[in-house]
Structures are given as C-alpha cells and as structure tokens.
Computed example of a mutant assay.
Amino acid sequence: MKAIIIIEYCPKCGWLLRSAYIAQELLTTFTDELEGILLKPSDEGGHFSIRLNGRIIFDRKTQGGFPEIKELKQLVRDLISPEKNLGHSDKTKEK
C-alpha cells in the first residue's frame, strides 16, 4: 500500500508556497512510494504539520520552525522505504 501525506498549513501566514515546495520535493523523490499528497489549509492560525498515513511526523509548534527538506526526506524514507538510497540527500555515513 502506498503512503499518503497531508501537509496542513496556515493560509493566513502565507505558507501555501512552502507547502507546495515540500510536496513537490517529496513527490519527486518518492514517486513509486506515495499515493499522493494533500495540501490542507488549516483553520488554526500559525499551524503547520505533516502527517504520514495519519501519523504526525512534523509539527511546527512542538518541533519549532520548519523542516529542512533533506531531513524530512530522510524521515519519510525511514518510515516508508528504509532501503531507498536518497543520493546526495542521504545521511552522511560515519567512517
């Protein structure tokens, strides 16, 4: 079963473009693993969260700021396709 991501954002804060960028990056990286991404305007001011199959994997208010795209890709990969190589976006391996 392919994963579904929901990005809930505050439209009053102007976070639609940020949400669309994140969606684009995830859809490009996880073409075969994702069913789709829903961009959902929030009724709550200042809200920004990312859910994967209903589970919150990022929340701006509890984690602070916004996710770095590299770290978000690693998190999503670890949850839906641990064997996937992210190329230059992958974690640096300790020697």
Rank of each mutant, 00 (worst) to 15 (best):
R51T: 03
I56W: 05
G64S: 06
P67D: 03
H88L: 15
N53E: 11
F58K: 03
R60A: 13
N85C: 10
E68K: 02
L79W: 05
G54Y: 02
V76W: 11
K70P: 01
F66Y: 10
V76D: 11
L75Y: 01
K70R: 14
S81I: 00
G45K: 14
K84R: 15
R51S: 05
R55H: 09
E83F: 00
G64W: 07
L79H: 06
S81G: 01
Q63I: 04
K70E: 13
R60Q: 12
L79N: 07
I69M: 09
L52Q: 06
L52N: 06
R55Q: 14
G65K: 10
F48H: 09
G46F: 07
R77G: 05
V76G: 04
I56N: 06
F58W: 12
F58C: 10
P67M: 07
L79M: 11
S81A: 13
L52I: 05
F66I: 02
R51L: 15
G46K: 12
D90K: 03
G65D: 04
V76T: 07
D90H: 14
I57V: 15
G45Q: 10
R60C: 12
I50W: 02
L86Q: 04
Q74T: 00
N85K: 14
F58V: 03
T62Y: 07
I80G: 01
L86V: 10
E68F: 02
I56L: 14
D59G: 02
S81V: 00
G64I: 13
L86S: 03
I80A: 02
N85P: 00
R55W: 05
I80C: 04
K70L: 07
E68Y: 03
L52P: 05
N53H: 08
R77E: 06
F58A: 05
G87I: 11
R77M: 10
G64M: 09
I69P: 00
I57L: 14
I56K: 06
P82E: 04
G46N: 09
F48E: 12
P82H: 05
R55I: 13
G45F: 07
L86I: 09
E44A: 10
G64P: 08
D59F: 11
Q63F: 07
L52S: 04
K61A: 10
I69L: 13
G54C: 02
F66L: 07
R77C: 05
H88N: 07
K70A: 11
G64H: 04
R60G: 11
L72H: 12
G54T: 01
Q63W: 08
F58P: 01
L75H: 00
Q74R: 15
I50Y: 03
R51Y: 15
I56H: 04
N53Q: 08
L75W: 03
L75M: 13
K61C: 05
S89R: 13
K61Y: 10
L52Y: 08
E68G: 01
E68W: 01
S49P: 11
I56A: 10
G45N: 11
Q74N: 10
L75G: 00
K61W: 13
H88R: 14
K73Q: 14
G46W: 08
L79I: 10
G45R: 13
L86D: 04
L72I: 15
Q74P: 06
G46V: 12
L72S: 12
Q74V: 02
P82N: 02
K61Q: 10
Q63L: 14
L75A: 08
E44I: 13
G64A: 02
